[in-house]
Design a binder for these strands. Structure first.
Lengths: 249, 249
DNA sequence: GAACCAGTACTGGTCAGACCACAGAATACA
DNA sequence: TGTATTCTGTGGTCTGACCAGTACTGGTTC
């Protein structure tokens, strides 16, 4: 096998295993060439392979960077079949929460199991930001906290699936924000659940992390079901604020 | 945009538009360089990009050729990022099985809870077909059985997600069939697990169905992990050269 | 005639060193 | 202080050379 392919393979595995995190800068071509004892040409060819499959992005004059696992293609795509379904049938919200319960539980489990120190640092950063922000005004930190955990799972399939559901999740999160957060005791409970998820992941307790994350989603789902049964119409219209995923779950 | 990227883009469009047929040979690097008025280096970089995304294959001493598989139209999409990942990194198989464990468990749970008589009829049909087929020759019945259960969950989100993973799922099922079924005791265990899933769903026992389905996927995953550790352990350790790639000091 | 073998003319793979274009920080100047 | 200017580091491109496989060609040998 050609050297350039070996190098591209090594780099890709390094990225998958978390040795190089998304958005992180890759050593310069000249550095890599020197360090690996090959010419700069083969380094460039290896990087172009990774570029071709979207693993890295290269910016002239700045360097090469690991591509975000979550592609920036958030065209809301209101024409997608699932979106249309959601518009017409409120029950889809609970269907999604059912799926999320499983996937987020697994994500928390894997994160607690596999997170590198860099991952833990990022999660901590996202969590502290989440704590210091009023979830009603800005759901962005919540989204980051959630995303940090998913990325720390180091499971590209999981990342891919959750990313495919991102837009739908956005709607459910906005629903939960609109319905749950205004209620003081709900907000406190959710905040406490976030804290427990964070602690379980940091303490590297996979089973606990899964259990807590799942019960968290379940809690939100049940709460909203309760609200719906009371007759209060569930608010489903998105805020016009920044995108958010996760202010609970 | 860099010249190499323009060239790779032009070449890919040429291939997609049928200007270059599958298996057909691409002009040599030196010819392309001369014809396009650029250096051979940029040609090589462009080709490596296409190679990275599986559009072409390059053989030393022979030339570069348009890759064979090309139903790029819809479902099959062997060029999707996840597919490419799967090709290059066997680990992705276990990543997918991790996700499947959760989703199929949930699917079985919901199917046992919500299946209509029509659903149950379909599941029965798929199950009997699965029983009567030699699993060694065809993985399809296996996949169909699982799919019937998923559809009986009546959760469109779940169906959508698993459908998006259909091709990857087929690969895992095939992998399990190819690796596990040849072994008598494995085949029997798996067959028994299928039976128990079937019975749990038919008896409308959600919790049992979930538990059994999850342990089924887990069993397959563990078994294949065991096989891999016996037979392919060495291949997993590709390059332990003296040089390391990560960010240094 | 058939089998073998070296020569040759391709192909891609790697290397070295040079120069250009861009981005950003440090510096000098007004 | 604030704005040019320079400097340094990055990726982008070029050149020409050599190495390494592949396949065809033509001659030698049996």
């Amino acid at each position: 096998m050609a050297i350039s392919q070996e190098i591209s393979y090594r780099l890709e595995r390094l990225i998958l295993d978390g040795g190089l995190a998304p958005e992180q800068k890759i050593p310069s071509e000249r550095q890599l060439a020197t360090r690996l004892g090959v010419s700069r040409a083969v380094i460039r060819e290896a990087l172009h392979e990774l570029q071709g499959r979207g693993v890295i992005e290269t910016r002239h004059g700045k360097g090469s960077f690991v591509a975000s696992m979550f592609p920036r293609t958030d065209d809301l795509d209101p024409q997608s079949p699932l979106m249309l379904l959601f518009e017409g049938h409120p029950r889809t919200l609970f269907d999604l929460l059912e799926v999320r319960e499983q996937l987020e539980g697994q994500a928390a489990y894997l994160a607690a199991k596999r997170a590198t120190t860099l991952d833990l640092h990022r999660i901590t950063k996202a969590y502290t930001a989440l704590e210091q922000t009023d979830p009603l005004t800005n759901a962005r930190p919540d989204h980051n906290f959630h995303q940090a955990i998913v990325e720390a799972s180091h499971n590209p399939v999981l990342v891919h699936v959750l990313n495919g559901l991102k837009n739908l999740m956005l709607l459910t999160v906005q629903a939960s924000v609109a319905n749950l957060n205004p209620r003081e005791e709900m907000r406190n409970k959710i905040s406490r659940q976030h804290k427990r998820i964070y602690q379980a992941v940091m303490a590297k307790k996979p089973e606990a992390a899964r259990r807590i994350a799942m019960s968290h989603v379940r809690f939100v789902s049940d709460a909203m079901r309760g609200i719906e049964q009371q007759g209060t119409a569930i608010i489903r219209e998105p805020f016009n604020g920044p995108a958010s995923i996760g202010t609970s779950p």
